[in-house]
Design a protein around this nucleic acid. Structure first.
Lengths: 155, 155
DNA sequence: CCAATCAGGACTATCTTAGTACTATAAAGG
DNA sequence: CCTTTATAGTACTAAGATAGTCCTGATTGG
């Protein structure tokens, strides 16, 4: 249930392997992480599009984090790689799902989706790397509209 | 990101359409929910396997909730339909993923996975049906081992 | 017995995911 | 100014998951 894709996991590993401020080539990253170079390349391009890394072209070029690890959230990474797919089909952009009329739960899944999303948005790359401590099972039953989330179109 | 499958959504709608204690045939449920009969049938079988509904065979047979809606959790439904798939590949049964040696984040995703899971386990079918109120963006950064979760093999 | 209804599979399109390949563009450095 | 080292962009393919269908067998009420 509720999985993130392998590529998102890779992306996290890749971001984690970058030292803040230091320019690193895709080849170097591939070597460090043991993920295939073509895959690393592809992911870095997507992360660049999403603004999570900066790129420098040409000889001696490479990639580096666009901002501090504390300012990159799990949700950012997921969005960058998977696009803002929602929990249910109807929770997407202009949510319609065929059984809308008889569906009594759509709204609710949507809210659960938003809650989980907010939680992931509050979880930084730094947090992911810190080994100590664990997670609170969050309470999904109670209120708070949460940050409105504008689904963006994946290019 | 982080989606549940259409079938899980359907399953929720189906469960929601059942009146506690009342026996209802698959055909009747299909009509009520406007989901195709073969699909409804298939899902009800899975829900029966998972012990979320009871079935009665033969003429005048049908399905009914195995227990009160308050005692059926979102996690139960997801497990029943999708099986206990984990957030990352490595988070599964005997988690190995090829880049294990260099992977610094696996553990953490796993904990996030468990936290979300606990949250979904605490969310009942009743909660999903209640329209009022909204959800708290849960805090995934802080501690608590949470309920250990034994992945079961899907039959 | 017969009709209604669930049980259990097997099967098939379609979509998504993961991974690859190729060409173009940019910068560094002799 | 040309070669080398990189990223940018995009197209493509194979494998797997998802959604949905269909058929045959078992059970029960009337």
């Amino acid at each position: 249930m509720l999985r993130i894709s392998k590529l998102t996991d890779y992306a996290t590993v890749i971001l984690a392997s970058l030292t803040a401020g230091v320019l690193t080539s895709a080849a170097e990253i591939a070597e460090r992480t043991r993920i295939g170079l073509p895959t690393v390349s592809k992911l870095l391009k997507e992360l660049q599009h999403a603004g999570l890394v900066d790129s420098v072209r040409g000889a001696r070029g490479g990639y580096r984090l666009a901002r501090a690890p504390a300012l990159i959230s799990a949700a950012d990474i997921i969005d960058a790689v998977e696009g803002p797919v929602a929990l249910t089909e109807c929770a997407g952009d202009d949510g319609h799902c065929g059984i809308e009329a008889t569906c009594q739960v759509g709204q609710r899944w949507q809210q659960v989706s938003l809650a989980i999303r907010s939680a992931l948005a509050a979880l930084s790359l730094d947090d992911l790397l810190t080994r100590t401590g664990q997670f609170d099972p969050p309470d999904l039953r109670q209120a708070s509209a949460g940050t409105a989330w504008r689904p963006l179109v994946r290019s």
